[in-house]
């Protein structure tokens, strides 16, 4: 279940009264204002909204890449605002998988080595790491490209490697920031199909930021952000924006 009224209990993700302000050129900009959100395990949520509405900022805050100006974010029982430095990094390694618009692969490492990176933070043996990496690459259909460097891959293939890297350590949450934004329609559809499969078959909790309505259609829940505020879809605070009853 997804709620935006701040009345959820024991959700995987609990966001309360979240504010985020930026200071630019002496001017304070409110990016997120008093945002509440409760998300249960296994939900697939898409965020849409105009540029500057705070979608990516919200994703960064959930992933512990940025800190809120006010309010709290609790993920799997951890209040991430209370973590910093080494602890926050370890928390990210355990709970979060990132999929970026520009793939963010390390160019001097092969696909295998890129996917293996998150596992270096675990206690897995070399052979176990190899097993996990091969399984992740198989899931995205790239076992035959595992020893290729990013420059030897197409954009779609690079993004599939990035997905394998995001899921290889079995994180609690996947955060996808415009994952198809730099791809053609066919490649984008392949990526969305993989992400949908991760939600459907592996019950991953997924947050997807997109400008693409077709991409958003894949999500179980669609939330609109506008001027830093989540627009509610149902009067009782429970989000009812399922594919069949979304407001157009």
């Amino acid at each position: 279940m997804v709620r935006v009224d701040g009345k959820g209990t024991e959700s995987l993700v609990e966001i309360r009264s979240l504010d985020k302000k930026y200071r630019r050129g002496g001017e304070e900009i409110d990016v997120l204002r008093g945002l509440n959100l409760d998300v249960d395990q296994g939900e697939f949520i898409a965020f849409m909204g105009p540029s500057g509405s705070g979608k990516t900022t919200l994703l960064n805050l959930i992933g512990g890449l940025d800190v809120p100006t006010a309010g709290t974010i609790r993920v799997a029982g951890d209040e991430i605002g209370a973590l910093s430095g080494r602890k926050l990094a370890a928390w990210r390694a355990r709970h979060i998988g990132f999929i970026f618009q520009m793939y963010n692969l390390i160019p001097v490492l092969t696909a295998f080595q890129n996917v293996q990176l998150p596992l270096l933070l675990t206690g897995l043996s070399k052979s176990d790491r190899r097993e996990h990496v091969e399984a992740a690459l198989e899931l995205v259909g790239l076992t035959d490209r595992m020893h290729h460097y990013p420059r030897q891959l197409s954009g779609g293939q690079e993004q599939r490697v990035a997905i394998a890297r995001a899921i290889v350590a079995d994180p609690t949450i996947l955060l996808c920031d415009e994952p198809t934004g730099d791809l053609d329609r066919a490649s984008g559809d392949e990526i969305l199909a993989i992400i949908s499969r991760l939600s459907r078959e592996f019950r991953k909790t997924i947050f997807l930021v997109t400008h693409d309505p077709v991409a958003a259609e894949r999500a179980g829940t669609l939330l609109h952000l506008d001027k830093g505020t989540l627009l509610e879809c149902a009067a009782d605070g429970r989000v009812a924006c399922k594919p069949e009853d979304r407001k157009r």
């Binding site: 992933g63 890449l65 430095g85 080494r86 990094a89 370890a90 990210r92 390694a93 355990r94 979060i96 990132f98 970026f100 963010n104 390390i106 160019p107 990176l117 998150p118 933070l121 890297r165």
Partner: peptide, 16 residues
């Protein structure tokens, strides 16, 4: 810098 940020996002800490 983007690579460094990516490594940090993946969970590598400041000491690493």
């Amino acid at each position: 810098s983007a690579e460094i940020a990516t490594l940090k996002a993946l969970g590598f800490g400041p000491a690493s």
